Deep mutational scan, measured.
Amino acid sequence: ETFPLDVLVNTAAEDLPRGVDPSRKENFLSDEDFKAVFGMTRSAFANLPLWKQQNLKKEKGLF
């Protein structure tokens, strides 16, 4: 299941849709939104070091 970017960005855990893991908001973006937000594919993002993934998520309001 995916959700629009505005539902996930800068949203407190208690305000997220049911079933969304607040530590993994990026997994609930569509592939198109994911690429638009991070400028890379999911596989490229997954290959980044964890610290870099976290920094990007913070920068984009998805942490």
Rank of each mutant, 00 (worst) to 15 (best):
V37R: 01
P17K: 04
S30L: 02
D31H: 07
L16H: 04
Q54C: 14
V9T: 09
L8T: 04
E14P: 11
G61H: 05
K58R: 13
R42F: 04
K58H: 09
T2H: 10
E14V: 12
G61C: 09
A12H: 10
D15F: 09
P49A: 06
N10W: 05
F34E: 00
N10G: 11
K52S: 09
F63T: 13
K60A: 14
F38W: 01
E59P: 01
A13L: 13
A46L: 12
E1A: 13
F38Q: 00
K60G: 03
S43I: 13
R42Q: 05
F34H: 00
F38S: 00
A44R: 09
G61D: 05
F63I: 13
P49D: 08
F3P: 03
L29I: 08
D6A: 13
D21S: 04
L8H: 04
F63G: 15
L16I: 06
D31G: 04
V20M: 06
P17Q: 02
A46F: 12
W51K: 08
F45A: 00
N10K: 08
K52W: 11
E32G: 11
A13C: 15
S23C: 15
L50Q: 12
E26P: 03
E59F: 07
T2R: 08
W51D: 11
N10Q: 10
F34S: 00
D15V: 07
N55E: 15
E32D: 13
G39L: 09
K57M: 07
N27G: 06
F38A: 00
G61Q: 03
V20P: 05
F45N: 00
A13Q: 10
P17D: 05
L29M: 07
V20W: 04
G39R: 07
T41L: 08
T2Q: 07
R18C: 15
E1M: 15
G19N: 10
M40E: 00
R18L: 15
L16W: 06
T11V: 14
D15S: 10
F3E: 03
V20E: 05
P22E: 07
M40N: 00
A46P: 00
F34V: 01
F28E: 06
S23M: 15
P49C: 05
V20K: 04
D15Q: 10
E32H: 11
R18F: 14
V20L: 08
K58G: 05
G39V: 02
E1N: 12
Q54G: 07
D33M: 05
S43W: 13
F3I: 07
K58A: 11
K57C: 08
L50N: 09
T41Y: 03
P4M: 04
K52V: 14
L62A: 03
Q53V: 01
